[in-house]
Amino acid sequence: MARLRGRGYASVNYPTGMNLGGDPSQALIHATTTGTFVVSLSSVDLGQGLKTVVAQCAAETLGLPMENILVDTADTDTGPHCMGTFASRGTHRVGNAVIMAAAEAREVMLAVAAEELEVDAGDLETDGTGYIQVKGAQERRIHITDLALAAHFTHGRTISGRGMFLKEKNDPVPETGEMDPDSCQAHACTVAVVEVDDETGVVEVLEMHNAYEIGRALNPAMVAQQVEGGAWMGMSHALFEATEPYYPARDHGPRDFTEYLMPGAADIPAYHNAILERPAGNGPFGAKGIGEMTANAPIPAIANAIFDACGVRLDTMPFTPERVLRGLDELRGYHD
């Protein structure tokens, strides 16, 4: 018996946005009397961090600190329409809508500030800490709290903005498949290092190296969450998961987490990840969607690493010990 080591590669791309477009998302923003900006949406945060990342988009665009942003979402009575959270569209679609709404609100904010400071709106800038100030004369400034109060009680102005992102729906040409399916493409290359136990057929993933090009890392800690969580799911898909382990036979279906196997904390490899940024012209600050794709490249990288380790080509998922052993038996000339 031996533990055989191998290395496998895979490189992939992944589309951002609902396939073929036609998937709008809206955002509305308004300032309260004290200068908190409420971002109203109906978008859903599944745990990927949408609420956080769109608040960053709003803060950046308004030129205000994060503390001045509230996100109110996922209530169809109070939030404008969003197509939903899927197809790696949330950050891209909702982020763009929020930026558009925030840009409109910023314009009103600067217009009111111009009246208060008796200057031209074009001469104003935000300092990122809450002040709107005259360019080159920073002592002439007003804090957003005072400005919002003035807007309400002196000027009778609503500081608000509307935003919407829509990629127009495209219909494929049925004869050729000609179509415009996506907004942009993110990219990844994964290198997996595995060890195959040639007696048990068990595959252990020792290392995973992931290089991602994602346009812009809007929040690097949440990018790391997606990359690592996705790599784990890809490994899980590759080695364990099936609701019908002997597909197309319907039996032996797992019913709970004791039967539906997934890697545990003991099974995770050493990760080495790196990010490249080639901003997308249509992405929020250049960002592309990577919520889904992080599970993709690990699967073939592991398949290819298994072949490199022991010469067994697994063309059927998942790569269970049974399949590895049957492959090894075939290589050795055994048959059942």
Partner: peptide, 22 residues
């Protein structure tokens, strides 16, 4: 680290890949 891994072996997480939890 091994003791932490063992302690949480009955807890399923589908998002993080466990590393940040450990």
């Amino acid at each position: 680290r091994a003791e932490v891994v063992e302690a949480i072996s009955g807890n399923v997480c589908r998002c993080t890949g466990y590393g940040p939890i450990v």
